[in-house]
Simulated scan of single mutants.
Amino acid sequence: MSDDFDLTAPELTPEDLLVLDDLHFDADSVALVTGAASGIGQATAVALAANGLTVVGADIDGDGLADTAATIDDFDLPGPYHPVETDLTDDSDVDAVVAAAADEGDLRYVANIAGMQHIAPIAAFPMDKYDLLTDIMLRAPFYTAKKAIPHIQATADGVGAIANMSSIHGQYATQAKPAYITAKHGITGLTRAIAAEGEGTLRGFSVSVGYVLTPLMVDQIQDTAAERGISEQAVVEDVMLGQARTKAMMTPAEVANLFVFGFSSHAGHLNGADLLFDGGYTHTYA
Rank of each mutant, 00 (worst) to 15 (best):
A123Y: 06
G242Q: 13
Y281N: 14
D95H: 08
A69Y: 03
I221D: 02
A9N: 06
E197C: 02
G272P: 03
Q222P: 03
H269A: 12
T68E: 01
A69I: 02
Y143S: 06
A45W: 02
D106T: 11
E227Q: 15
D91P: 04
H24Y: 14
A43L: 10
F125D: 02
S166H: 08
A101I: 06
G41A: 13
S2C: 07
N164E: 05
T155V: 13
F142R: 03
Y180R: 04
A36G: 13
K146Y: 10
S38I: 00
Q42L: 10
V46A: 04
T282C: 15
T8F: 09
Q233N: 13
G189H: 08
Q233E: 15
A154P: 03
V207L: 13
V260Q: 00
N271F: 03
G64C: 09
M240N: 05
G198D: 00
A100H: 09
E15T: 10
E199K: 15
G41R: 07
G280E: 12
L18S: 01
V110W: 01
P150S: 09
D87I: 13
L216C: 13
G160H: 00
A70L: 05
H169K: 11
I113G: 00
F142N: 03
S265Y: 01
A234C: 11
E227N: 15
P126K: 06
V159R: 12
H118V: 05
I72H: 02
T71G: 04
S38M: 00
D238M: 07
L190E: 03
S264D: 00
V84N: 07
S206M: 10
A195G: 04
A225I: 09
S38P: 02
G170H: 09
V218D: 04
A248C: 08
V30Y: 03
D6G: 11
G242H: 07
Y143D: 04
R192M: 15
G198S: 06
P150H: 13
G160I: 06
P10C: 12
G268R: 14
I136F: 08
D87S: 14
G170N: 09
S2K: 14
L190M: 09
A124V: 00
H151L: 08
A256N: 02
T246I: 14
E15D: 14
V236Q: 06
H169G: 08
L23C: 03
S29Y: 06
H118K: 15
N271W: 00
H151V: 05
I187A: 10
D93P: 05
L190K: 10
I230L: 12
L77N: 06
A154D: 11
K177L: 12
